[in-house]
Amino acid sequence: MFEPGHLHRASLPGQIDYTVDLYYEVRRDPKEGPMLHFRMEGQIAGKAFTDEFELHRDTAFNFASVASRVAAKHGLPTNHSLVMRSHDEFDKMFNDIREKLGAKPGETVNFDHLEKDGL
């Protein structure tokens, strides 16, 4: 389920039991500028977790990769995708992030941000 600023995912029958909520918002950092802040919370195989990460404006569109790594760190098998399972919701989330950041296709990426954001 997607709504602006929030993506909810739950396991399908036959998968490891999980529920994950991914919340996001733009925050202004005085030094780094606009940052997309993410908070993930939920449970994987009965174990609750909460985690947070931030991405620079120009690297924010790699959120699915980072969210997948965070989920794997908390026990979700790497072959379970939080974002790509329902591609229409991913598209809506991607467009919502683009709108919130005022981003346009073709904008440059600062390669220093890739390293800072762990990408």
Rank of each mutant, 00 (worst) to 15 (best):
A48N: 07
M93L: 09
R39A: 05
V83L: 05
G5Q: 04
A103N: 03
D17S: 13
S65N: 14
K73V: 06
T108L: 10
G106A: 08
R69I: 02
V83G: 09
L22P: 05
F49N: 15
A67V: 02
A48T: 07
P77I: 01
D88V: 00
Y24R: 05
R27V: 09
F111K: 11
K100C: 01
R9I: 03
D96V: 00
L7T: 00
R85I: 01
V70E: 11
L55R: 02
K104Q: 12
K104Y: 07
L22F: 02
N79Q: 14
V70K: 09
V109F: 05
T78E: 15
D17P: 11
K100A: 12
R69F: 10
G5F: 09
Q15S: 04
K116G: 15
L119Y: 05
L119G: 14
S68Y: 15
H56D: 05
G42F: 01
R98F: 05
D21H: 10
F61E: 08
H80G: 12
L7W: 00
F90Q: 05
P105W: 06
V70L: 06
G102N: 15
R28K: 06
K73M: 15
K100I: 00
F38H: 00
Y23S: 07
F2N: 07
Y23C: 07
D29V: 12
P4M: 07
L76Y: 11
R98K: 15
E115S: 15
I44N: 09
I97H: 05
K73S: 02
Q15H: 04
S68F: 04
Q43P: 11
A71S: 02
G118P: 02
Q15C: 06
F2Q: 06
R57K: 13
F53W: 10
R85Q: 09
Q43N: 06
A71I: 01
V70I: 14
F49I: 01
V20K: 06
N62V: 00
E115Y: 08
A72R: 11
G42D: 03
G118M: 12
E115F: 13
Y18E: 03
